[in-house]
Design a protein around this nucleic acid. Structure first.
Lengths: 237, 237
DNA sequence: TGAAATAGTGACCTATAGACACTTATTTGT
DNA sequence: ACAAATAAGTGTCTATAGGTCACTATTTCA
């Protein structure tokens, strides 16, 4: 095959490619419960249904897939999330009524407060409680994707402190523990939890305290050592 | 936006999508070393270089991304691999000279023997020793992808017996241990290794033995309990 | 037949996580 | 002002998993 032939085939191939999108499952923790950011679809297909923030790669503006996700999330929340991780790609003929379609799904975490006003100002974007979401009829296979993201975060809660990215900049250990308990779905031993956190050496004692009707809890901040957020095992996890 | 408008936009979007491919890092273990299946590219771009098996989704034949990978691997090896796992998607403007391009990469494992004759009969397909491969100039970012796949397998070797899929149907524990040692890059304690294997209860003693100039080793077979291949922690890992 | 080679086990030691009672520091109620 | 309630944080015992290494077992080969 010569170069000319290749170029002809290349155009053909590109035209026959599956539809490619990205989707993001953005979690946060607010008022003792896990929430996920959803968008009411204004376009066909699935118009009117709620779905994950996401969309097409902008070939001019985006240099990487992560750029696309960050751009899409910034459009909806006003800021870029402090934690972003690729989850999985899903591609088949069934997930989209238009036929063959591939999505690269991401999981992201951010503090509720850091986008509260922006989200409140936009009508079609909302934080929804995860338990309620699981009973909703979402667009495409977004329910499945949220399930995958949740399971991934459950694993993170067992062996890392990644979930802390869903909290505000400073937070207490009882707060973080409760978030982990919500993710894992069962109570944790206070002592064991704190031992793990301590050994990981990823939190900094801010010196400040916060009281809630009992002994005040110490406020911590994450040591931002680019990516060293897992305890024992890395892998993505 | 009405449905007609959408359809117009849809075509536009599809045309402007990044080029989408799949790639597979297929490992095996033969003669005490790790090997990876590579293909000599017969087409532009990167014609003449060696690269990972993979290619475009066939919108007619494939129903899922996994179908695409299985089809591509079967074309090169004659059989479908017993272990296949999605690794990661990589998409940016740099990885392909043609511009924006996305690949969904998979990791696969299979026994050397199960495709030995097929591979030997095809000129442009070859098992190459991993250490040699790392010094080769491969097509696109395939060197990076192989690195990611290798690291993933290293993690698997620490906490699972997934690497056993790179061995023939029956194998001995010393054999499996050596494979794990090659993946991890350092020797393992015989006793600890065997304890883990035993506790996992994923291997069946075939009753047969195989001798190699000493006490004969027991031959084992994998219990194929769809996906229950990890020890303690699941998730990918 | 005994030495070398390889497979497999016994037994002790250490590190880590679970369990849970205890101490500490604050708020609330009288 | 002081006791009770409430929530944070610690001390310590126990269970379990994994590291270490010497020992036993079964084969081949000279």
């Amino acid at each position: 095959m010569d170069e000319q032939q290749f170029l002809a085939d290349y155009d053909k191939h590109q035209y026959d490619s599956p539809l490619l999108t990205i989707d993001a499952v953005l979690f946060t923790y607010h008022q003792e419960c896990l929430k996920v950011l959803l968008v009411e679809r204004s376009n066909y297909p699935e118009r009117g249904k709620w779905g994950l923030p996401g969309g097409f790669v902008d070939l001019q503006r985006d240099k990487t897939l992560e750029d696309t996700v960050r751009r899409k999330l910034a459009e909806k929340t006003g800021v870029e999330p402090p934690y972003l991780e690729q989850l999985q790609s899903i591609g088949n003929t069934q997930r989209d009524p238009r036929g063959w379609s591939v999505t690269v799904a991401y999981t992201a975490l951010m503090a509720f407060q850091s986008c509260e006003t922006h989200v409140a100002s936009v009508a079609d974007v909302q934080w929804l409680e995860l338990d309620r979401v699981s009973r909703m009829d979402l667009a495409f296979d977004h329910q499945t994707i949220i399930g995958l993201a949740r399971e991934r975060m459950r694993q993170k809660a067992l062996y890392s402190i990644v979930p802390a990215y869903a909290l505000p900049e400073t937070f207490t250990l009882p707060e973080l523990q409760h978030l982990h308990e919500v993710l894992i779905g069962k109570p944790l031993q206070k002592k064991s939890f704190r031992r793990r956190i301590e050994q990981a050496e990823l939190l900094i004692n801010t010196g400040e305290k916060r009281s809630e009707g009992g002994r005040p809890a110490t406020l911590y901040r994450m040591k931002q050592t680019s990516g060293a957020y897992t305890f024992v095992r890395n892998l993505e996890d």
